[in-house]
Amino acid sequence: MTTDDCIGVIGAGNWGTTLAKVLGDNDKRTLLWARRDELCREINETRQNSQYLPGFSLGPSVEATSDLERICKSASLIIAVVPSHTMRETARELGNHLTGEHVIVHATKGIEQGTFKRMSEVLREETCLRKIGVISGPNLAKELAARQPAGTLVASRYDEVFVRTHAALHNDYFRVYQGRDVIGAEIGGGFKNIIALAAGVAAGLGLGDNTKALLLTRGLSEMARFGVAMGAEVMTFGGMAGMGDLIATCSSPLSRNHQVGARLARGEKLEDIQRDMRMVAEGVKMAKAANDFAVRKRLDLPIVRAVHNLLYEHHQVPLLLKELMSIPAGPEFAALTV
């Protein structure tokens, strides 16, 4: 590719800026897109994004711009990191400037509300692109920005997507693994938020590590059952985008999903919590979508059901816990022999 020396990052939020920082650390010429000109100015003048990644400097090879067309003309590898609810709109805009030669990977966790579509499906519907992939894994932005060793998964049906993303991001503190199961990688990244919410509830109740491990392991099993029903491969959930992401997310008491769970356990109301947080925790939306899907497909996902009933049916935490613990336990992998 003649344009290989330039990479476009669409979205200058916390995770987008962090990925741009990794690219900067790798001396890759990077165009970082932010919708607001003031933010672009700040990044270009101070090398910092004080709102979304305070305390970290971006390398000199990173330039912020609000010009999507310029990015598409200069870069043939695009990394899309916009929130799930703005992906469609941004993709449509990008679509005005893309050609079939472009490669895109998205690093957006979550599913489009209403349509229940995965981000790669949204990209496929809104652009001419075929070479689409996803980055998903246990990647807490702050730790990665601090160059603490981490790994991630790039999944795509197209080898070229992996090869080029690997060449751009892989370095001595960030390991980029290859996968082909796009559906699994996308499901893992969204579904884990439901389990993180449940883990928050357990923490809020003062329950210990045995409970957390039980929750994570059975949560992983539900994730795999759900994913397989969506067309994913079961092995994906044992990897970076499944178990890996689940461990990282559920271990962090700072995550929004965890906080929502903990506060619900303490008896606070969802509306009050959401008002305080100003942003909807992904797990809150995902629990509804996943539960609806499970009902439709007749999947038995007890943890998802419990989280859903806690959020939307106003069930009480002690009762839900009792219900979960009274489900008969049989062979551990019985439900996975799909």
């Binding site: 344009t3 679509g95 809104e126």
Partner: peptide, 18 residues
């Protein structure tokens, strides 16, 4: 045509650097 009905150059899909 792309899914939004925009014209796209078919050759670009099989091109590497044009």
């Amino acid at each position: 045509l792309d899914p939004r009905g925009r014209v796209v150059d078919a050759a670009s899909y099989v091109s590497d650097g044009g």
